[in-house]
C-alpha cells in the first residue's frame, strides 16, 4: 500500500464564463506529504482543491491520483476524504453516526464499523462525545468530529479546506500541532488549503503559492521564505511583510536613499529593480542608510519600527533589548545575502 496518495495536476484550467479561475496549473504531490495550497482569497487554491475532490470539473487539463487519470471520475469514486471549512457535520446525526456514515456508504458491516469509529474517535480524543449531536459540541469538538469522519475511512487522500479558520486563536495553535502529529501517525497524504501563510509554513512539508489563478512557486516553506521567486510571493509570505523598495542596480550593488548596499548578485550593467529586505534582516548599524524612527510597535519580545529613509518607508524588526525611541535618528543596513532582487517589469527574482 505504500505510495498511496500521489497527486499530479497537469495544465488544469478552470473557466467561470470569461473569467479564468485557474490558468493552467501544474504540480505534483508526493505520497505521505503534507502539502499546502497557500494564497489570498480568489487566488484559485480552493478551486484547485475542489477539482481534486471532484466537486468541480476543470475546463481543461488532467488530474492523476496514483498514476490513474481521475479527471472525469465522480467525487464518490475517488477515495478522498475531506474536512470542510464549515465542517459540514450532519446536524441530524450523532457524532457516532457522522463518523460511521462514510463506512456505511462503503457497505461495511456493523462489526467492522463499530471498532473503526471508536478508533477514529480515540485518535482525535472525542470518544466521550459519540452520542452527542453536532449542535451540542463546541467549535473545537466539531472540528475534531469532522476530522474523525475524514480519517475513519483511511482514504488515500486527505483534503482540508481551511479547517482551522473557525477556531479561536489559542485553539488554532493547539490544533495545528495535533493536526500535524495526526497526519504523521497516519502517514496519509494531506492537501491543505489556507490563506494563512504562518499555518502553511508550520504545517506543510511543501507548499504551492497561488496568485491570481496561477502557481507562483512550489517548494519547502523554508525555501519559499528564503528565496521567494517573485515580488508577489515575497510580499505574501512573512509577517510583517518584506520591505519592497524600487531601486537602481549597478554593478553588484543597489542604491537606496543615496546609499549603496552590496548584493550577492554580481552582474555588470545597470537596471531598475525592486529590492526586498525582510524586516528581520534590517540591521541598525553605523554608516548605513540614515533613517528616522516614526513609530514603534512593541510586540513584547520584539518590536517593529516604522522607519523613514528620506521619503522611503522601511519596517524593521528589532529584539527587545535595544528599541530606539520614536523620533530617534539612526542608520540601517543589510547583509548582501539578505537582499532579494526582483526585476521591476517581470516581477521575477533575479
Amino acid at each position: 500500500m505504500s505510495g498511496r496518495g500521489q497527486v499530479r495536476f497537469e495544465d488544469i484550467v478552470k473557466m467561470h464564463g470569461e473569467f479564468a479561475a485557474l490558468k493552467g496549473v501544474t504540480f505534483e504531490i508526493e505520497p505521505g506529504e503534507f502539502f499546502a495550497l497557500l494564497g489570498p482569497s480568489g487566488s484559485g487554491k480552493s478551486t484547485t482543491l475542489r477539482i481534486l475532490a471532484g466537486l468541480d470539473a476543470p475546463s481543461a487539463g488532467r488530474v492523476y491520483i496514483d498514476g490513474q487519470d481521475i479527471t472525469t471520475a465522480d467525487a464518490r469514486d475517488r477515495d478522498i476524504a475531506m474536512v470542510f471549512q464549515s465542517y459540514a457535520l450532519y446536524p441530524h446525526m450523532t457524532v457516532y453516526e457522522n463518523i460511521a456514515f462514510p463506512l456505511e456508504m462503503a457497505r461495511m458491516s456493523k462489526a467492522e464499523i463499530v471498532p473503526a469509529v471508536q478508533e477514529a474517535a480515540r485518535k482525535v480524543a472525542i470518544e466521550h462525545l459519540l452520542q452527542r449531536k453536532p449542535g451540542q459540541l463546541s467549535g473545537g469538538q466539531q472540528q475534531r468530529c469532522a476530522l474523525a469522519r475524514a480519517i475513519v475511512r483511511k482514504a488515500r487522500l486527505f483534503l482540508l479546506d481551511e479547517p482551522l479558520s473557525n477556531l479561536d486563536a489559542k485553539l488554532r495553535l493547539e490544533t495545528r500541532t495535533e493536526l500535524k502529529k495526526l497526519q504523521r501517525s497516519l502517514g496519509v497524504t494531506a492537501v491543505y488549503v489556507t490563506h494563512d501563510q504562518e499555518e502553511a509554513m508550520t504545517l506543510a512539508d511543501r507548499m504551492a503559492v497561488f496568485m491570481a489563478g496561477e502557481i507562483q512557486q512550489v517548494g519547502r516553506p523554508a525555501d519559499v521564505f528564503a528565496r521567494p521567486n517573485s515580488i508577489d510571493v515575497a510580499a505574501f509570505i512573512g509577517s510583517p511583510p518584506m520591505n519592497l523598495i524600487p531601486a537602481r542596480y549597478k554593478d553588484g550593488g543597489i542604491e537606496i536613499a543615496g546609499h549603496r548596499l552590496e548584493t550577492s548578485l554580481k552582474e555588470s550593467g545597470e537596471r531598475d529593480v525592486v529590492v526586498g529586505i525582510r524586516p528581520g534582516a534590517v540591521r541598525i548599524a553605523a554608516g548605513g542608510i540614515p533613517a528616522v524612527v516614526e513609530l514603534v510597535e512593541d510586540l513584547g519580545d520584539t518590536a517593529i519600527l516604522d522607519l523613514d529613509c528620506s521619503g522611503i518607508s522601511i519596517r524593521a524588526r528589532v529584539s527587545d533589548g535595544d528599541v530606539p525611541r520614536e523620533g530617534t535618528s539612526l542608520s540601517i543596513t543589510a547583509r548582501a545575502p539578505d537582499i532579494h532582487l526582483f526585476d521591476a517589469t517581470t516581477r521575477r527574482r533575479l
Partner: peptide, 20 residues
C-alpha cells in the same frame, strides 16, 4: 493506450452537468 479512451477534460463538466 488507455488515454484515448478517456474523454477530454472539458467534458467532465459536461458529464457532471448531464448527470445532474
Amino acid at each position: 493506450p488507455h488515454a484515448a479512451a478517456t474523454p477530454p477534460a472539458g467534458d467532465l463538466g459536461r458529464v457532471l452537468a448531464q448527470r445532474e
